[in-house]
Computed example of a mutant assay.
Amino acid sequence: MTRRAPLPGAAELFRQTTPPVVPDTRPKVSRGGSPRQKHDTKITVYVSDEELLALEHARLSLRAKHGLGVDRGRVVREAIAVLLADLEEYGEDSMLVRRLRQESGQ
Score class of each variant (00 low, 15 high):
7 L>V: 11
44 T>W: 02
21 V>Q: 00
47 V>C: 12
37 Q>F: 03
6 P>A: 12
33 G>H: 03
96 L>N: 01
39 H>Q: 05
33 G>F: 04
37 Q>W: 03
88 E>M: 05
10 A>S: 09
103 E>I: 03
27 P>G: 11
45 V>N: 02
17 T>R: 15
99 R>Q: 14
46 Y>G: 04
83 L>T: 04
58 A>C: 09
24 D>H: 08
84 L>Y: 10
9 G>R: 09
10 A>V: 11
26 R>T: 15
4 R>D: 05
40 D>F: 09
89 E>A: 15
62 L>W: 06
25 T>F: 12
41 T>K: 12
89 E>I: 09
86 D>F: 03
45 V>S: 01
30 S>C: 03
20 P>I: 01
93 D>L: 08
65 K>F: 05
73 G>L: 06
18 T>G: 00
43 I>R: 09
48 S>F: 04
41 T>L: 12
20 P>D: 06
7 L>N: 08
73 G>M: 07
64 A>P: 00
103 E>H: 10
40 D>R: 13
84 L>F: 11
104 S>Y: 08
61 S>W: 07
53 L>A: 14
91 G>F: 07
16 Q>F: 03
37 Q>L: 12
9 G>D: 14
43 I>Y: 06
46 Y>S: 07
8 P>V: 08
51 E>Q: 15
31 R>F: 12
42 K>V: 14
5 A>E: 13
95 M>G: 00
70 V>W: 04
75 V>S: 02
68 L>Y: 06
32 G>L: 09
79 A>V: 06
26 R>C: 09
85 A>D: 12
58 A>R: 08
80 I>L: 15
80 I>M: 13
6 P>E: 09
49 D>N: 13
55 L>I: 07
25 T>S: 11
52 L>H: 14
80 I>Q: 01
94 S>P: 05
27 P>Q: 11
84 L>S: 04
66 H>K: 11
81 A>P: 08
29 V>W: 06
55 L>D: 02
29 V>S: 08
36 R>S: 09
62 L>T: 05
99 R>C: 10
100 L>T: 03
8 P>I: 06
52 L>T: 00
25 T>E: 11
52 L>V: 00
106 Q>L: 15
10 A>E: 10
11 A>M: 07
79 A>R: 08
54 A>C: 07
20 P>M: 01
23 P>Q: 13
25 T>P: 02
7 L>M: 11
106 Q>H: 12
23 P>R: 13
35 P>H: 04
62 L>V: 01
103 E>S: 11
33 G>A: 05
19 P>F: 10
91 G>M: 05
21 V>F: 02
62 L>M: 14
34 S>I: 05
102 Q>K: 14
43 I>S: 06
3 R>V: 00
26 R>Q: 14
44 T>H: 07
69 G>W: 04
86 D>S: 03
97 V>P: 02
8 P>F: 05
41 T>W: 06
40 D>G: 13
61 S>Q: 11
96 L>G: 01
57 H>A: 15
55 L>N: 01
3 R>K: 04
36 R>M: 08
70 V>D: 02
58 A>H: 09
17 T>A: 09
85 A>M: 00
68 L>F: 06
16 Q>Y: 02
25 T>L: 14
